[in-house]
C-alpha cells in the first residue's frame, strides 16, 4: 500500500505540487486554530489564554442539556434544515432547467438576474418586511389565514415551518439555481442533438439527459449541506421570529435557543461547546452518507 502511494507521489509530483498552496492555507488558517476547540472543555480565562485556562471536562456542555427543550430544538433544527435543503434543491433545479430550456433571450437573461436579487437582502431587513407582510389586514394571505381559522400569524406556531420554508425558498432558490445553470451549461450539446435525432421529446431529454448529468452535482451539494444540518439557522430564524415565545415549539432551533441562553451570562467556552456538538453530529452524518454514496457512485462522494 505504502509502496503504491509513494510511487504515486513521485509519478504525479507536479500535480501534488499544485495542491501545496491550498494545503498550506488550510494548515495555517483551519488546522492551527483548531487548538481553540479545547476551549469547549475549559473554563476559558482570557488572561490565562487557551493553554492556561482550567480544564473542566464536559461542564460547558451541561447548560444546553439542562433545559428539557434540547430535544425539541434539535429536532426543529434538523427538520427545518431538511425542509429547506430538500425543497430548495428541488426548486433550484426546476428553475435552472426551465431557464436553460428557454434560451438566451434578453427576457430570460433578465429573469435570471432578477431571481438572485432576494439573496442580497439581508435577513434583518427581510424581518422588517415580514411583519408587514404577515400582519396585513387585506390581501390573499389574509384571506388564506382566515380560511384556516388563524387570527394572528404571530401566535400560531403550527404554520411557521411553512412560513419559514417560504422565506427560505424565496431568498435562496434563485441564487442556488446558478450552480445548476453552470452545470447544465457544461453538458455536451451533442448528446441532445443525438437524442433529438432519435425522436426524443423535450421532456424526455430533460429526464434522460439533463437530470442524470446533474446527478453528481446534486449529490455532492446535498452531502455538503448535510454537514450543516444541525446549525446555520440563527440569522434567518431570529430575524423572522425574534423572541416570540408563542412560536418556539416549531421554530426554536439550536442556534436561537443557545443564543438566548448565553446572551446574558455566556462564555466563550459554552458557545464553543455547542458549536462542537453541532459539528460532531454533522460530521458523523456526513461520513456515514459519504460511505453510502461511495457504494453507488464512486465519483460523487466528497471523500
Amino acid at each position: 500500500m505504502k509502496h503504491k502511494g509513494l510511487r504515486d507521489l513521485v509519478k504525479n509530483r507536479y500535480i501534488y505540487l499544485m495542491t501545496l498552496p491550498a494545503l498550506l492555507f488550510s494548515l495555517i488558517f483551519s488546522y492551527l486554530p483548531l487548538a481553540g476547540i479545547t476551549m469547549a472543555f475549559q473554563d476559558f480565562n482570557p488572561i490565562k489564554g487557551i493553554f492556561g485556562s482550567e480544564f473542566i471536562g464536559l461542564r460547558n456542555f451541561e447548560f444546553f442539556f439542562r433545559g428539557r427543550d434540547w430535544f425539541t430544538v434539535t429536532f426543529n433544527t434538523v427538520f427545518l434544515n431538511l425542509l429547506f435543503i430538500g425543497f430548495g434543491t428541488l426548486l433550484s433545479i426546476t428553475l435552472a432547467i426551465m431557464l436553460s430550456e428557454l434560451g438566451k433571450s434578453l427576457f430570460v437573461r433578465g429573469m435570471q438576474s432578477i431571481m438572485i436579487l432576494p439573496n442580497f437582502i439581508s435577513w434583518p431587513i427581510v424581518g422588517l418586511f415580514s411583519v408587514a407582510f404577515l400582519t396585513a389586514d387585506t390581501g390573499t394571505l389574509d384571506g388564506l389565514m382566515k380560511w384556516l381559522g388563524i387570527s394572528d400569524a404571530y401566535m400560531e406556531s403550527s404554520i411557521w415551518p411553512v412560513i419559514l420554508l417560504f422565506f427560505s425558498l424565496w431568498k435562496g432558490t434563485g441564487f442556488g439555481a446558478i450552480v445548476y445553470l453552470a452545470a447544465i451549461a457544461g453538458i455536451d450539446r451533442g448528446l441532445y442533438e443525438a437524442a433529438k435525432i432519435d425522436g426524443a421529446s423535450r421532456l424526455q431529454c430533460i429526464f434522460r439527459i439533463t437530470l442524470p448529468m446533474l446527478k453528481s452535482t446534486i449529490i455532492m451539494l446535498f452531502l455538503l449541506a448535510l454537514g450543516g444540518i444541525f446549525s446555520g439557522t440563527l440569522d434567518m430564524v431570529y430575524s423572522l421570529v425574534g423572541d416570540n415565545s408563542f412560536l418556539f415549539p416549531t421554530t426554536d432551533t439550536i442556534d436561537t435557543y443557545v443564543f438566548r441562553a448565553l446572551r446574558t451570562q455566556g462564555s466563550f467556552g459554552m458557545s464553543q461547546a455547542v458549536a462542537l456538538y453541532q459539528s460532531i453530529i454533522g460530521f458523523i452524518l456526513v461520513v456515514l452518507s459519504n460511505q453510502l454514496v461511495k457504494k453507488f457512485d464512486k465519483d460523487s462522494s466528497i471523500f
Binding site: K4, G5, D8, L9, N12, Y16, T19, A22, L23, S26, S30, Y31, L32, P33, L34, A35, G36, I37, M39, F44, I50, L224, G227, G228, F268, S271, Q272, A275, L276, S279, G282, F283, V286, I302, F303
Partner: peptide
C-alpha cells in the same frame, strides 16, 4: 492516489472550527 485523503482534509475544516478566539 491520495486524493480522498486530501479531500477529507479539506472537508474536515468545513465542519470543525477552532472558534473566534484562536
Amino acid at each position: 492516489y491520495y486524493r480522498n485523503h486530501i479531500n477529507f482534509i479539506f472537508y474536515f475544516t468545513m465542519l470543525f472550527n477552532g472558534g473566534l478566539v484562536s
